[in-house]
């Protein structure tokens, strides 16, 4: 039996992503991978998948997915308002996000719009049955590699599932949405902060920068006050790490993300701390950010704290009530706690 999710209607920019194609930057191969690794990892954990299983990264608006399998468990993580269409012509029923849902053959999951973030994630229990390329399923659309035929999903595509039916088990949900933090985006100075004047460095950390319309998986161009160089914008090309902030001659910062080129010739004033990269991967055009410097040691510590919080969030998953049904376990537990028995 074929088990698959059929794209009944395409979203805007939906690609399969895992935690990235690691180990081939020396060959010019971009890492790609989930823009918001936290949401993907939560979605995988809700489904009981290994952390590096590929899921669907939903860009701005998600697809309608028709279940062509006995059953499938999906987890949706992110600010979504998904709907379930039980059979053709049935009215769509709202579903919750940040939890798993058990879907049956013939049902359509309408993933819908992502509100207040540029990305959300859908994972399926067991993962997708697609071949990895250079060790990863991440889509790198510029070179047409990875994921589903190396591109974003289109209507009529069929995503093969590794499992013909959902594994037994309860539906799970996040106890609360993950706290990505607010306030300024933490950055570490360098590698070429010495290519900028004192005034330029001050401008960078004392100004608001607005996400322009030129924002995609490769990077985000910001608008705001121009940053003054002291040694010019050009360097002899060197490696570009995740979150590198390059400043070309025009003086406006560009934060480079998963699909960035592996080397580049513009001076990089600072690098976004890895703790805040998932936030960058969620930014929408028009939103503004402030950058604030931390040391390498502080950035490493912040990241370790975040990983510990992520582990706690996963350990604290709750059993979710099936839609329309009664969660007896939960009912009894709450009655016991409240001391009220009906």
């Amino acid at each position: 039996m074929i088990a698959q999710l059929k794209v009944a209607r395409a979203g805007l920019f939906d690609t399969l992503q895992d935690l990235g194609r690691i180990g081939f930057m020396a060959l010019g191969m971009p890492t790609a991978g989930a823009q918001d690794r936290i949401a993907l990892r939560l979605a995988n954990a809700l489904c009981g998948n290994p952390a590096d299983t590929a899921g669907l990264e939903i860009g701005v608006m998600g697809p309608d997915l028709l279940v062509e399998a006995e059953s499938v468990r999906v987890a949706l993580v992110g600010p979504l308002s998904p709907m379930l269409i039980e059979k053709p012509d049935a009215p769509p029923k709202p579903l919750e996000s940040d939890r798993t849902h058990l879907l049956k053959r013939g049902q359509v999951l309408r993933v819908g719009m992502v509100e207040g973030s540029s990305t959300a994630y859908l994972a399926v229990a067991g993962g997708f049955a697609l071949p990895a390329f250079m060790g990863s399923l991440s889509t790198y659309a510029r070179a047409g590699i990875g994921g589903y035929e190396g591109r974003k999903l289109a209507a009529g595509d069929a995503l093969p599932l590794a499992r013909e039916q959902a594994p037994p088990g309860d539906e799970k949900k996040l106890a609360q949405p993950f706290d990505y933090g607010s306030g300024p985006v933490r950055v570490v100075w360098g590698p070429q902060d010495d290519y900028f004047s004192d005034k330029g460095r001050r401008t960078f950390i004392e100004s608001d920068y607005r996400v322009s319309k030129e924002a995609d998986r490769m990077g985000i161009r910001f608008e705001g006050p121009t940053i003054e160089h002291s040694k010019g914008a050009d360097i002899i090309s060197d490696g570009i790490g995740p979150g590198a902030i390059q400043v070309p001659g025009a003086g406006l910062p560009i934060v480079l993300l998963g699909d960035r080129q592996t080397v580049g010739g513009y001076s990089k004033i600072a690098t976004v701390a890895s703790v805040d990269l998932p936030r960058l991967g969620r930014l929408l055009p028009g939103q503004t950010v402030r950058f604030t410097p931390v040391t390498v040691e502080e950035a490493e510590e912040l990241r370790r704290d975040q990983e510990a919080r992520l582990a706690r969030a996963i350990a604290g998953f709750q059993t979710a009530r099936p839609p329309g049904g009664i969660d007896l376990v939960r009912l009894y537990e709450e009655n016991l706690i409240d001391g009220v028995v009906y």
């Binding site: 690691i22 180990g23 081939f24 930057m25 020396a26 002899i236 090309s237 060197d238 490696g239 570009i240 790490g241 592996t262 080397v263 890895s274 390498v296 040691e297 950035a299 490493e300 990241r303 370790r304 990983e307």
Partner: peptide, 23 residues
Amino acid sequence: VVETVPSMRALMVCYDPMATSRA
């Protein structure tokens, strides 16, 4: 150490801060 990225004059060393540290 996750991977290294050579360029004309520099080598970028990528690492996992969960498994090691810069220091």
